[in-house]
Write a protein that binds this DNA or RNA. Structure first.
Length: 655
DNA sequence: GAGCACTGC
C-alpha cells in the first residue's frame, strides 16, 4: 500500500513554483459563505476578492501599458475589471473596453452576468460577439466580450483596433493558438498606439514569462513624449481566489503499478479519513475499468468499512445520463468514488504537429495543480499524488506545451498573411513555433495555390481561402467544387468534417436526415447524434452565405460522386496514401513521405482497403490511424497538385 | 478492431 507523508506547514497553497518579482498584495480576505436572504448585487460585487484591488488595478492600468493580473478561479476578475474600467472613464468618448475569452460559452455567460450587474439590457451598453451571434451595437456598446478568434477577424478590418481603449485578454494561461496570435499582434499595435492599454489575465503563475514577452522589444521606443507615455514594463498584480486549502501528499517511493496504487489509496482514504467524496485521475478507459473491478473486489473482501463506496466511472464514451450520475448527491454514510480521465480536469490535449497523439504521457505541473484544485472548490480538501515529491519538483514540466508549438500552422499562417504580416518567420510570439513547422505550413499553402512564389496571398484564390472561416484545405475544396459543379455536396462535407465520419458516408447520412424532415426520431433510430446534426446544419448555413458572397453558385452533382472525390482531393492531396502491395494487414504508405498508416476501424472502408485513399486526420495510438477516409484515383494527384507530386518540387520563397 | 479530451473563425 502506498505510503504518504505530509509536507510541512510551509508552502502556501498551490503556489509551489511561484517565481519572484510578483507584487503580491496580500490580504486577509475570508470567504464569506453566503448569508441568508436577499443580498444586493452591489454587496455581492463587494464581496468578490478582486473588489479590494479596485484602486490598485485602476492605478496600474493608468500608469502601465500592460498590466498582468494573476487571479485564481472565483476572484471575480473577468466580470469586475471591465466594470471598474468603465466606472473610471475608460469607455468615455465613444471608446470601447474589450474582454476576450477563449470559448464562446464563456463569452455569453460573462456578458449576461455583467449586463445583469449593471442593470442594462444585453446588447446595448454591454454586448458580445461570437461566431454566429453579434449581440452588440456599434453606437451603444461600451463593454464588449468576444472570443479571441473574433478579435482576430476584427483586426482584418481595423488593424489597430482603434475603437478600443483597453483590451483585456482573459484566460491567457490556456495559451490557445488564437490567444497567442492576439498577444503577438497586440504587442505590435501598442507600438503604434501608446494610449492603448492591455490587461492580460491568467489563472496560473505564468505571469513572469508573459511580462518578459511584453517587456522585450527589439528597438526601444523613441523618447519624444516620454512623460505622457505609460511605463513600458508590465505591472503584475496577484489577486487571490476563492479556492480552499488543499493539502498535498506524495508517495515516498515511486509506485510500480499505479492502478493498484490508486485502488489501495482509495481504500486507505476510506479507512482513515472523515466523510467526503474521492476523485481519481487515470489515463484511459482501460485503466478505469480495471480499477473499478479491482476496487470492487478489494472492497468486498475487506469487509465492514468498504460497503459504503459508490464507485462511478467518468469518461467521454459514456452516455450523458451515465456521466450525470456523478452529480447525484452522496447519501449519508456513503462515500462516492469517481474514477475519471482528464475529462474532470478540463484542459490538456496531447498533440504533436498535425497528428493527434494518444500515447500516454506525463502531465505538467500546471495540470497537477489544476487537478488538486478540484478538491478545494467548496471546502478544504486533500490531494494524494501517486508520484514522489522529488519527481514533481525535478521531472515534471511546468506547463504543457502551448498549442502553437504542437499544431499544424496552415490556418495560423494564412491568418497572419491576411492581416498583412509578411515576415511570418520574424513574428514576435509569446512562444515561437519551430521554423520547420512554419515552413511546412508555407509549403502546403503554396501547393494549395494560396501563396505565390513570394509567399504572398494569391488573387483571387488566396484571398478567398482567407475569407472562409475554415481550415485552408477545406476552403480550397469548396473553391474547387465550384469548378467541378458539386458545391452543394461539398459544403455539406465541409460542415461535417468538424464533427466525424467518412466524407461520402456522411453525405448519405445528411441526405437521409433531410428526407426524414430533420427528425430527431430518425436520428435516434439510426444511432445518429441529433445535436451534432443540428450543429452541422448551422455551420452549413453559415458556409452557404459566405460562399454566395464569394460568387459561388450552389450546384449539385446529383449522384456523380467522382466529382466530390476530386474536389476533396484538390484540398487534401498532401494526405494521399497507397495500399502496400502484398500487405495482409491493410498497411498503407503516404505517397510523399512513405509513412506507415492504417485505416481506422471506425471507417466504412476498414477492411475494404481501396488501392489509393486520402484522409482528413491521423490519430496516433499503437499505429497511425487515418480517420475520415475517401478512395481516390491516383492520377488526380498530379492533376490537382502538380508541384506537390512532381519529381523536382520547388519551395516557395521564405521571407 | 479501436476507444484521453477539446475549442475557435
Amino acid at each position: 500500500m502506498a505510503q504518504f507523508w505530509k509536507p510541512g506547514t510551509e508552502k502556501p497553497r498551490l503556489l509551489e513554483d511561484e517565481d519572484g518579482g510578483v507584487i503580491f498584495l496580500s490580504s486577509s480576505y475570508s470567504s464569506s459563505s453566503s448569508g441568508y436572504g436577499y443580498v444586493s448585487i452591489e454587496k455581492q460585487r463587494q464581496r468578490l476578492p478582486v473588489y479590494k484591488y479596485r484602486t490598485a488595478i485602476l492605478y496600474l492600468v493608468e500608469s502601465h501599458a500592460t498590466t498582468i493580473v494573476v487571479g485564481e478561479t472565483g476572484s471575480g476578475k473577468t466580470t469586475q475589471i471591465p466594470q471598474f474600467l468603465k466606472e473610471a472613464g475608460w469607455a468615455d468618448g465613444g471608446r470601447v473596453i474589450a474582454c476576450t475569452q477563449p470559448r464562446r460559452l464563456a463569452v455569453q455567460a460573462v456578458a449576461s452576468r455583467v449586463a445583469e450587474e449593471m442593470g442594462v439590457k444585453l446588447g446595448e451598453e454591454v454586448g458580445y460577439t461570437i461566431r454566429f451571434e453579434d449581440i452588440s451595437s456599434p453606437d451603444l456598446t461600451r463593454i464588449k466580450f468576444l472570443t479571441d478568434g473574433v478579435l482576430l477577424r476584427e483586426m482584418m478590418d481595423d488593424p489597430l483596433l482603434t475603437k478600443y481603449s483597453v483590451v483585456m485578454v482573459d484566460e491567457a494561461h490556456e495559451r490557445s493558438i488564437s490567444t497567442d496570435i492576439v498577444l503577438g499582434l497586440l504587442k505590435k499595435i501598442q507600438k503604434r498606439r501608446p494610449e492603448l492599454r492591455l490587461i492580460i489575465s491568467s489563472a496560473t503563475i505564468e505571469a513572469k514569462s508573459m511580462s518578459n514577452f511584453f517587456l522585450s522589444s527589439k528597438r526601444r521606443q523613441a523618447l519624444e513624449g516620454e512623460e505622457l507615455r505609460p511605463r513600458l514594463e508590465p505591472a503584475i498584480l496577484s489577486v487571490e481566489g476563492r479556492g480552499f486549502n488543499v493539502q498535498i501528499h506524495y508517495v515516498e517511493d515511486p509506485v510500480r503499478d499505479y492502478v493498484q496504487a490508486a485502488v489501495s489509496t482509495v481504500l486507505l482514504i476510506n479507512d482513515k479519513e472523515p466523510p467526503g467524496d474521492i476523485l481519481v485521475f487515470l489515463t484511459g478507459q482501460d485503466d478505469i475499468d480495471a480499477a473499478i473491478k479491482l476496487l470492487t473486489e478489494e472492497a468486498r473482501s475487506n469487509g465492514k468499512n468498504s460497503s459504503g463506496l459508490i464507485i462511478l466511472p467518468l469518461y467521454s464514451g459514456l452516455t450523458r445520463a451515465e456521466q450525470d450520475l456523478i452529480f447525484s448527491p452522496t447519501p449519508k454514510g456513503k462515500r462516492k468514488v469517481v474514477i475519471s480521465t482528464n475529462i474532470a480536469e478540463t484542459s490538456l490535449t496531447l498533440e504533436i504537429s498535425d497528428i493527434e497523439n494518444l500515447v500516454v504521457a506525463p502531465i505538467s505541473k500546471a495540470s497537477a495543480r489544476q487537478r488538486a484544485g478540484r478538491a478545494g472548490r467548496l471546502r478544504p480538501g486533500k490531494c494524494y499524488r501517486l508520484y514522489t515529491e522529488e519527481y514533481f519538483l525535478n521531472e515534471m514540466s511546468i506547463q504543457g506545451i502551448p498549442e502553437i508549438q504542437r499544431s499544424n500552422l496552415v490556418s495560423c499562417v494564412i491568418q497572419l498573411k491576411a492581416l498583412g504580416i509578411d515576415n511570418i518567420l520574424g513574428f514576435d510570439w509569446p512562444a515561437s513555433p519551430s521554423p520547420e513547422s512554419m515552413i511546412r505550413a508555407l509549403e502546403v499553402l503554396y501547393s494549395l495555390g494560396v501563396l505565390d512564389d513570394d509567399a504572398k496571398l494569391t488573387s483571387p484564390v488566396g484571398f478567398q481561402v482567407a475569407e472562409i472561416p475554415l481550415e485552408p484545405m477545406i476552403a480550397k475544396i469548396i473553391l474547387s467544387s465550384n469548378e467541378l459543379g458539386c458545391s452543394d455536396e461539398i459544403i455539406t462535407i465541409a460542415a461535417v468534417l468538424s464533427i466525424q465520419g467518412d466524407h461520402v458516408t456522411f453525405l448519405n447520412i445528411y441526405k437521409g436526415f433531410l428526407q426524414s424532415g430533420k427528425s430527431s426520431k430518425w436520428c435516434h433510430k439510426n444511432f445518429i447524434n441529433y445535436h451534432a446534426m443540428k450543429k452541422v446544419m448551422e455551420i452549413r448555413e453559415l458556409l452557404r452565405r459566405i460562399v454566395l458572397r464569394l460568387g459561388i453558385v450552389l450546384k449539385s452533382c446529383e449522384t456523380d460522386m467522382q466529382l466530390v472525390r476530386k474536389a476533396v482531393t484538390a484540398g487534401f492531396f498532401a494526405n494521399a496514401c497507397r495500399l502496400e502491395a502484398y500487405s495482409h494487414g491493410g498497411m498503407y504508405k503516404t505517397i510523399r513521405g512513405s509513412q506507415e498508416v492504417y485505416i481506422h476501424p471506425s471507417s466504412v472502408l476498414f477492411r475494404v482497403n481501396p488501392k489509393c485513399v486520402i484522409y482528413h486526420s491521423l490519430v496516433s495510438t499503437d499505429r497511425q490511424y487515418m480517420r475520415n477516409v475517401m478512395s481516390i484515383d491516383p492520377s488526380w494527384l498530379t492533376e490537382v497538385a502538380p508541384h506537390f507530386y512532381q519529381q523536382q518540387r520547388h519551395n516557395p520563397t521564405i521571407h
